[in-house]
């Protein structure tokens, strides 16, 4: 396996992840007839935040100060596990899909603990909703990845997509479509996009992810924003890998190029969804996530029956 082929996607993630929220914002603005913020707005924000001081609540402890770093560390460690279209992952081992799930859960634990550390009822509410959504989303992710594991014969994320997805699209297109929809729903839920959570809302009662990080500023907030962009990248990569039936990438640049183009497309799709849909009533969210689980389970069933 070519070294560059596997390390390029990781570098791309580190450098380009903050671009995705920019793309989404631009798409939403365009649909609404506005010009919107610059594509690189998040880079500017990060640069500005990294140069600031910080303000902490007197209630908080070291947990609050360490949480953004821990969450970001978990996401950074997840990056080498991800494959690029047609290529293996930088770090590939049997069962890396469970490591990915575990790392995401660690990031969640840190964020929610920090939210509870502020003693604010709003942040507690955000944390409570976050863990609820995650509890329902996790089985869906597992089922979707298990279906791919079945098709590829490995549960290493690296080997799961390359060379499997292409034939699978030919033999079981409906099943792969179901998996893609399920992963898409989970992507929206995990990244707190509409219809689960409105990242643009300014009413604390209705926020989920944003409300958990209300008390952060300065470098900590920069870590959090960067981490959120990376999380979008992680889920987006899984989705792109599933949707692009790329057979082999002999040239290192090609796989990464496809990945980046695919991710931008995913971001555009998210922007369109956010423009077209309204937020779901909170009571309906579990149903949608259960639905995602049902779709993934159905996809798995179809692939097992092949």
């Amino acid at each position: 396996m070519n070294f560059w082929q596997t390390i390029l996607p990781v570098l791309a993630a580190l450098l380009l992840a903050p671009l995705l929220p920019g793309v989404i914002a631009r798409v939403k603005a365009a649909v609404a007839g506005r010009r919107g913020p610059p594509l690189c707005q998040l880079y500017f924000d990060l640069w500005k935040l990294l140069r600031k001081g910080a303000v902490y609540s007197r209630t908080t402890t070291w947990v609050f100060r360490a949480a953004p770093g821990i969450a970001l560390a978990a996401l950074l460690c997840a990056l080498p596990l991800l494959p690029a279209p047609g290529a293996d992952a930088l770090v590939s081992c049997s069962g890396s899909m469970f490591i990915l799930i575990g790392l995401l859960a660690l990031a969640r634990f840190a964020t929610v603990a920090a939210a509870l550390d502020t003693g604010s009822s709003f942040e507690g509410m955000g944390g409570s909703r976050e863990v609820q959504f995650a509890a329902l989303a996790e089985p869906a992710v597992l089922l979707a990845l298990a279906a791919l594991a079945r098709a590829s014969g490995t549960c290493a994320l690296g080997g799961m997509f390359a060379g499997t997805v292409g034939p699978l699209w030919q033999t079981a297109a409906p099943a792969v479509g179901l998996l893609a929809v399920a992963l898409g729903i989970v992507l929206l839920a995990e990244n707190c996009r509409i219809p689960f959570d409105d990242p643009n809302t300014h009413l604390e009662l209705t926020m989920i992810h944003e409300v958990m990080v209300l008390d952060y500023g300065g470098p900590d907030l920069a870590f959090i924003l960067y981490g959120a962009a990376l999380k979008l990248w992680v889920f987006g990569t899984l989705l792109v890998n599933l949707l692009v039936p790329w057979q082999d990438a002999a040239r290192p640049l090609a796989g990464t190029g496809v990945l980046i183009v695919g991710l931008v497309a995913v971001a555009i799709a998210i922007g369109l969804i956010e423009s077209a849909l309204a937020r779901l009533r909170l009571l309906k969210v579990p149903q949608l996530l259960l639905g995602a689980g049902a779709l993934a389970g159905l996809g798995l069933l179809l692939i097992v029956r092949l």
Binding site: L50, K52, G53, A54, V55, Y56, S57, R58, T59, T60, R65, P68, G69, T118, G119, S120, L214, D215, G218, P219, D220, F223
Partner: peptide, 16 residues
Amino acid sequence: RRRLLRGRIVEATVTW
């Protein structure tokens, strides 16, 4: 984070 915050103003206040 420690190095970034060194020499900058770190305030303590109430929770928002």
